[in-house]
Design a protein around this nucleic acid. Sequence first.
DNA 1: GTCTAAATGAAAAATATTATCATTTACACT
DNA 2: AGTGTAAATGATAATATTTTTCATTTAGAC
Lengths: 152, 152
Amino acid sequence: MRPSYKSIITALKRHGHKLTLQRRAVIDVITSSQDHLTPAAMFEKVRQDHPGIGLVTVYRTLKLLTELNLICELRTADNCPSYTAGTSEHHHHLVCSGCGKVVDFASPRLIERDVAKLEGKLSRENGFRIDEHLLEFTGLCELCQKAQASSV
Amino acid sequence: MRPSYKSIITALKRHGHKLTLQRRAVIDVITSSQDHLTPAAMFEKVRQDHPGIGLVTVYRTLKLLTELNLICELRTADNCPSYTAGTSEHHHHLVCSGCGKVVDFASPRLIERDVAKLEGKLSRENGFRIDEHLLEFTGLCELCQKAQASSV
DNA sequence: GTCTAAATGAAAAATATTATCATTTACACT
DNA sequence: AGTGTAAATGATAATATTTTTCATTTAGAC
Ligand SMILES: [Mn+2]
Ligand SMILES: [Mn+2]
Ligand SMILES: [Zn+2]
Ligand SMILES: [Zn+2]
């Protein structure tokens, strides 16, 4: 379930953080978009309604929201990190290596079960305490496939 | 199976690339170490035997070897990319978020089969052509767990 | 309204990576 | 062995992203 503007604000307050205009602006942008946005893209959107905001503040806000687990941080190979309000629930990513498009998906219970089992085995064998896992698919979205086909 | 210095050299030659002293030096370092090394760490090691080499050359060599699939490139959230000669075969990573230690593992056939099935489903549902997948576990290695325990 | 710690923004610094380009060099061919 | 040439190198600068510093502002407790 996508956390709403309101639920994020409430959580921030609950954790004793101040509700500044700048934070509200960033949260507004991130909850209003379906896409994963980079800090720079976020900054561009925010400054439309709120010129004078600093890029630094966007970085700081994203860091804070990530630490509080209120937004989803995605780091793929090529692109710089991006963020969505899209569900803090456990999910995974399908990423287009052409345009950076991201599709969130919940992996089937079957896989999660197998992964958990593997996690146990790896933990035992290597003495690790395992905190999380990440399953990511990379490929080309429909548009990028077409673009590639027509360019060849 | 870990590609040896020699096998990498042979592959480079086969692809028509020149065998410069600098490339040999980088390949020597990467095949002599078990660990995932960052470009910077690689540079430090290489310049011991080969002062005068440029960091740029290390970057270029790593890029080349990665493109030819002769080494394994790993990109995790916090650290910058790192590389090993460790097997170009399909495998996954267990990463310590404390010290960056990396354990390579081959995932069980069971998981690979399920993942392939999921790949098909996601591909159909989203119109993606999926090229690869990545399964990564993050946690704390034995030492970092101890360090954490004693610091609390 | 006052006070104070937290938050902001401007600027600079730190990091990581890539581009430019003159110089060097591996190696294919004599 | 010597020559020519395209590929590779390294110095330098440029780019991109993120973090630090610090003086100023401000949210929210009282
Ligand atoms: Mn999962
Ligand atoms: Mn796999
Ligand atoms: Zn795409
Ligand atoms: Zn560790």
